[in-house]
């Protein structure tokens, strides 16, 4: 059983994701229901959001369904859209080592950008189990995403208030995690390298295509600077 203290900490940490995922999920659900005219579209909104938890993808599939994009293209586009996920696990290898198959599978399956940020930070209360904390965060985020997308498809444009700009909660979440990480000196140079790589990626590519070159660039930089950066890590 997960301690209620751990559960509560995970819930509070996941609240920004609640705001962001509901806003983004509802938008994706509205788009899906608006473009694909079939009575059971809410059901498919539920199925697609529950099986593949991925923001950009949820928007992309709308056109794919509408145009019946060839499956090979779907596979390639998904690969490019989400290839950054193939790097995230590197930061979590040690944390997830030696845990049961089902739990590990779920943690891997549910690893979004936001869940990754929270799991890397892992602000588990004293005496709590970090793994249970990660599981709870992942499950909360997963639930928010399904709720957002399904709700969007069900209710369409019947939103109670103007939520324009609420997706900044996600940016703010990343900023807060980054601020906490940069309290430790050893993380500052890597953070700067990541930011610089993203800026360079954006200069040479469009917003939609900037992440892959940015990740390649930062990885190459890390390998080149390994000796110096590792010295920094060891000195801490």
């Amino acid at each position: 059983m997960i301690k209620s203290k751990t559960l509560k900490a995970a819930f509070i940490a996941s609240l920004p994701v609640l705001m962001g995922y509901l806003a983004m999920g509802i938008a994706a659900g509205i788009l899906l229901a608006g473009k694909i005219d079939r009575p059971d579209i809410s059901f498919w909104a539920f199925i697609t959001s529950a099986t593949t938890i991925s923001g950009a993808l949820q928007f992309a599939i709308v056109d794919w369904i509408a145009q019946q994009t060839p499956i090979l293209d779907v596979i390639l586009l998904t690969l490019f859209l989400n290839i950054r996920y193939a790097m995230y696990g590197l930061s979590l290898l040690e944390r997830f080592r030696g845990i049961g198959f089902l739990k590990k599978s779920y943690l891997i399956w549910s690893l979004t950008d936001e869940t990754y940020a929270l799991e890397v930070e892992c602000k588990v209360p004293a005496g709590g189990n970090p793994l249970n904390y990660c599981l709870a965060v992942a499950a909360f985020d997963h639930l928010y995403w399904i709720t957002g997308v399904t709700l969007g498809a069900l209710t369409g444009r019947l939103l109670p208030f103007d939520n324009k700009g609420i997706d900044f909660a996600m940016t703010a979440l990343f900023l807060v995690v980054l601020t906490d990480q940069c309290r430790e000196r050893k993380n500052r140079t890597p953070a700067l390298i990541g930011a610089a790589a993203a800026v360079i990626g954006r200069i040479f590519f469009s917003v939609d295509n900037m992440l892959i070159p940015a990740m390649i660039l930062m990885t190459v930089t890390f390998i080149i600077l390994r000796r110096r950066l590792e010295k920094g890590i060891c000195n801490e």
Binding site: E94, A117, V120, P190, A191, G194, M215, M218
Partner: peptide, 28 residues
């Protein structure tokens, strides 16, 4: 060890990248 090292430096870098990406996405 090199993978271990990349994993450690990657998390602040990837999150910094996501911040920049979020800023840029607003003007998509």
């Amino acid at each position: 060890p090199v993978i271990d090292y990349i994993g450690k430096v990657l998390s602040p870098a990837a999150i910094a990248m996501l911040v920049i990406y979020c800023w840029c996405s607003t003007y998509r």
